[in-house]
Design a protein around this nucleic acid. Structure first.
Lengths: 191, 191
DNA sequence: ACGGTAACTTACCCTCGGGTCACTTTACGC
DNA sequence: GCGTAAAGTGACCCGAGGGTAAGTTACCGT
């Protein structure tokens, strides 16, 4: 099998395994086993556990930030944005649901390339969340900047929860998930 | 120092360390170091890493389920319950903010006493969340049971996010945190 | 046919952390 | 004072997992 194809397989397997048990809990030999090869090949292609994780992280992070950026750039009513962003995330990761977790994995080493890269992606997403939260709050006449920070962080936690719930229900596709969120938000908040 | 007192110190230190880096990431020697003793004493008192974790988990879980149960039993308007429960949680864990994370640590072994005990606490909390979500949804005329499950899970994720945010802001006390949540919920949802 | 390169493996090393043993020190009742 | 029990420690074992060296197979261009 050509290197390029094997690498893609390994990144997919790595993303699932890292997403499932976190960086610290994942085992390189297990990731290799999932695609039917052995550990040294994995090391030959990615150099280290960090190298593999970075490859997985960049693929996930780039797709995610791009999808969210496009949605945010399109604009719209502040209380419509959360659903639009959710829809973009669900659509992007319908067949790759563990990817989101890589950006929020708190078992990665506290320093080094991974920490820096993950922090970078998180900052970019947090910036979007902050913009959305600010628009939402000002549209309601609220402006405490600390409240807005808190909302932005809770928002990412909500996405986290929804994706965890979704992972446990593989039969629910992106459209159904989006419809469910729309129904709930309309019912609970009148959005 | 008498055993009882030392054990209490170790449980506190263990809770902080397990909460900070998770079961898998925590080191027994580090926990011992935090209270100024060495590893063998820790093992003499708690038997194993699992034993220490269980001691920490039970303390956190018992206090949490008790606090939430009391609040839920008091009853009230469905859309007032979330804030009341949050207030109970913040008050209970004002000086022990990492405790909540023990119940939601997904780096614990998948089987064994810890998994069983943590699952038990989570199920009890999820049951409360499910009751609250059901009351909230029916008061809005919505009744899809799968939606209600999703809401219950998102709710626990929201609590998670709020506590993580709170951990990073040690100057904010329980009352201020409750007031902030009240302000935000009123502003965003009209609750 | 054959040299070379890329894909891939077996067998190994080394560190880290859970867990244990044998031992020393401290506190307290008599 | 002194014996005993509890508090506490230094030094060790061992398994798991990251990482590597050296070798083997398979394919491809000339």
């Amino acid at each position: 099998m050509p290197r390029e194809e094997r690498e893609a397989q390994l990144v997919v397997a790595g993303t699932e395994e890292f997403g499932r048990v976190g960086y610290a809990g994942a085992s390189m030999v297990e990731i290799a086993r999932r695609v039917g090869v052995t550990k040294p090949l994995l090391y030959q292609y990615f150099g280290s556990k960090d190298g593999l994780y970075l490859a997985c992280l960049h693929r996930a992070g780039d797709r995610l930030t791009e999808g969210v950026a496009t949605t945010m750039a399109a604009g719209g009513e502040p209380d419509q944005m959360p659903l639009k962003v959710l829809s973009a995330i669900f659509t992007t990761f319908d067949h790759d649901r563990y990817a989101w977790r890589l950006l929020r994995d708190d078992t990665v080493p506290a320093t080094g390339d991974i920490a820096a890269s993950a922090a970078d992606y998180r900052h970019r997403l947090d910036a979007f969340a902050l913009v959305g939260a600010t628009q939402l709050m000002t549209s309601r006449g609220l402006a405490d900047p600390v409240d807005i920070e808190a909302i932005a962080q809770v928002w990412t936690g909500v996405v986290d929860s929804l994706i965890s719930w979704w992972i446990d229900r593989p039969d629910e596709d992106a459209a159904a998930m989006t419809a469910r969120c729309a129904r709930i938000m309309a019912g609970l908040f009148g959005w």
